[in-house]
Computed example of a mutant assay.
Amino acid sequence: MRQIFVSNNHIGKTIALPIYTNKGFIFVREGNVLTEALIEKLHGIGIAYIYVEENFADNVVIELALPDTLRLTVLQELQALYKDIEKNRRVNEAAFTKIARNILMHINVSENSILPQDHATNDFISKLAMHSLHVAVSCIYGLKNRREKIDLIEKVIITALLHDVGKLIDKNDPLQAGVEVIKSTTNYPATIYIPIMHLNERYDGTGPLKVKGDSLFLNSQVLHIANDYVNLLSKYNRVYEAVETLSADAVGKFDMDIFKSVTDAFYCYPNGLMVQLLDKREGIVVRQNKNFTTRPVVMTTTNEVVDLVTSPTIFIASTLD
């Protein structure tokens, strides 16, 4: 199985994982062949990359961060809850808490796990649901990597699922609107909504509210890191570019110990990605080396296994997507 970016370069490839509409129905089944017309349709519903079959990719390890049925159910539930917030200006505390606990119960944080972006996002509500789930999962990866307590992780998941709801109420001041609707319609503690209030703050105190240093709690910083990461990933569609850009702007923005412990869970070259090594060999990433986010195991097109941890002089030069 190979990860590709949807383009005409891959016409004729066979789709390996199904693609879904924003209602959770199958849009394209596995086994279908990529055509120019299908590629245009995928672009139209916001699908950036997919997985296809590849002759030399049998050894690629693909694990799901969440089971497909749960992930699709969560996305549908989030869309319904966001519509309710938009219409009625209220947050369904019980429903958001239930979703957070369900995610936490079933999450797979293996270094080889992925959260497929194969769900159509052709309207604001579906984009919000996909983005918020992705931020929540990224928070879990980082907090699990730090071995934080389950209670704290659950609170951060709820915050991640709610962090952009203010955009449904007041586009001019969405963070304040989001905080107010949570405070006024739920019994959530301040640890749920303060990270939303502090989403644009910087560790050096130069953010809009001038909150700095240890006044920016772990929950706030993890949410900020994960949100920036997912936004950058949407912009670049490549994990290594998102992480590089995030890292370049990290000094002064984040507590660097927290930043490193969280981003150490973001693996830069996903399994199934085609790469070219510095020695010009081409291959596919088959699995990750835990805690070595830029040093995966690569299977070359000539069936050589190259472990970049045990081969320290070999580097990935570029991606072939």
Rank of each mutant, 00 (worst) to 15 (best):
R2M: 05
F5M: 07
V6G: 04
H10L: 14
A16S: 13
I19Q: 04
N22V: 09
A37E: 11
I39N: 03
H43V: 14
I47Y: 02
I47N: 00
E53H: 13
E53C: 09
N55W: 06
N59I: 08
V60M: 04
V61I: 11
A65H: 05
L66K: 01
P67K: 15
R71K: 14
L72A: 08
Q76N: 13
E77D: 12
Q79M: 12
A80W: 12
Y82P: 01
K83M: 14
D84I: 09
E86F: 14
E86P: 04
R89M: 15
R90D: 09
V91W: 02
N92F: 14
E93I: 12
A95M: 12
F96T: 06
F96Y: 14
K98H: 08
I99Y: 01
I103L: 12
M105F: 13
H106I: 09
V109N: 05
S110E: 09
N112W: 10
S113R: 05
L115E: 04
D118Q: 12
H119L: 14
N122L: 15
F124E: 08
A129M: 08
A129E: 03
M130K: 08
H131A: 13
H131E: 12
S132K: 04
H134L: 12
V135R: 01
V137K: 03
S138A: 13
C139F: 07
I140Y: 02
G142R: 03
R146T: 10
R147K: 15
R147L: 12
D151T: 10
L152R: 04
V156P: 02
L162I: 07
L162G: 05
L162N: 03
L168G: 00
L175G: 01
A177K: 03
G178M: 07
G178N: 04
V179L: 08
I182D: 01
S184F: 09
I192G: 01
I194T: 07
I194P: 00
P195M: 10
I196C: 04
I196E: 02
M197G: 08
L199H: 05
L199N: 03
N200Y: 15
Y203C: 06
Y203P: 00
D204R: 11
G205Y: 08
T206E: 09
K210V: 10
S220L: 02
H224N: 06
I225H: 00
I225V: 05
I225M: 01
V230R: 00
N231H: 09
L232P: 00
K235S: 08
Y236F: 10
R238Q: 11
V243Q: 01
T245C: 04
A250E: 02
K253F: 08
F254G: 00
D255I: 11
D255G: 08
F259H: 03
K260M: 13
T263L: 05
T263E: 03
T263V: 14
D264Y: 11
C268V: 07
Y269P: 00
P270W: 07
N271V: 10
G272W: 02
L273C: 09
Q276V: 10
L277N: 03
L278C: 13
K280T: 12
G283A: 04
V285G: 01
V285R: 00
K290M: 11
N291L: 15
N291T: 14
F292E: 06
F292T: 05
T293I: 15
V297N: 03
T300V: 13
T302F: 07
E304S: 15
V306D: 04
L308F: 07
V309G: 04
S311H: 11
F315A: 10
F315Q: 11
I316Q: 00
T319A: 13
D321N: 09
